[in-house]
Design a protein around this nucleic acid. Structure first.
Lengths: 176, 176
DNA sequence: GGTAAATTGGACAACGTGTCAAAGACAACA
DNA sequence: TGTTGTCTTTGACACGTTGTCCAATTTACC
């Protein structure tokens, strides 16, 4: 049933609980029996997607090779997920950060922060922006790229390229 | 009465129409008489704020001096507005972009795009990222900085500094 | 003063969320 | 076979917000 929720809410974040229930082959009240409120359900969905992301991320071996390579791999993996699950761009998730839970997608951000620190101490990335800010900036730029694509103002390739380019610049990477 | 709406919704984007009406000294139905739906009302509010922004922007004489200076001035002005009106960070406005109206806050983005083009042709900014993307990236970074402050993870000064630093890097400015 | 406009008050439908209680299904266990 | 406990279903309902309608009333203008 979480599967159904991931399927429905992942693609259509505004779907009503009734539709989730229907997709799961159950009743609305049964959904409530498992997840007391909508936000809690969404949180569970995000957790599941996060787990998927972590798997993909760890398969990408971020700790080997250059930090720049790892960064690009991270962008590649998360970029794919963002376009598979529009939910991740949706306010109900984006806005979730500041209120109660940073813990949900934390593992993903954590891996990024780790590779940033590696890159900074290795001298690959510039050291005068804090890792925490760079994480936020990276996510923000990825979000922007996704919006451009969704709005039809850029192709997925253009956006992806601009994103890589921009992020590398913010990190102060790629200078001799 | 638009004044009241700006006051209330600008600071508290989730405020109910009743509160807007109360602040305006009228009834809920009277609000509906002027603005048929909530989205239309917030659109009007955004328009008003945009006008305020344009005034401030034009007072800053963006077309004189270096493009870098103009960029920093643009950031300064919009940064101030973003923190005076949390509504601008709210989903109802942020999400408004992609659906129906880009025209509302367009003048602000347009001025940024213009100075980007100036900077690029003058060789002050790098030319291999499109102005349109740089606009989106700038707004996204500004948004991220605002969120960091709102979440208490950075002070307004730290965020503002990181924002300036990051934006300049994305633009490819500040290199010998 | 009289007319047209705007405002008010009250009531109401629609919609989604969340709650509750009672009946039904189904397994495990004796 | 019967019983117990859990999970699901069904139907109903409260609640809050948005949006609509209308008759009565105030306001403003000529």
């Amino acid at each position: 049933m979480l599967d159904a929720a991931v399927e429905v809410l992942g693609r259509q974040p505004d779907a009503k609980l009734e539709q989730v229930a229907e997709a799961a082959g159950v009743t609305r009240q049964t959904v409530y029996a498992h997840y007391p409120s909508r936000p809690l359900l969404v949180a569970a969905v995000v957790d599941r997607i996060t787990a998927e992301a972590v798997t993909a991320l760890d398969a990408a071996a971020l700790d080997s090779g250059t930090s720049t390579g790892a960064l690009l791999a991270w962008l590649e993996v998360t970029w794919r997920l963002f376009d598979r699950y529009p939910l991740l761009q949706h306010p109900s998730v984006t806005g979730m950060d500041r209120s109660d839970s940073d813990q949900h997608h934390a593992p993903v951000a954590e891996r990024l922060e780790r590779l940033i620190v590696n890159g900074q101490t290795a001298g690959e990335f510039d050291r005068d922006l804090s890792p925490a800010w760079l994480v936020s900036a990276t996510v923000a730029l990825g979000h922007a790229a996704g919006v451009e694509v969704a709005a039809g103002r850029m192709t997925a390739e253009e956006a992806s390229e601009s994103l890589r380019h921009s992020v590398l610049r913010v990190y102060g990477a790629g200078r001799a």
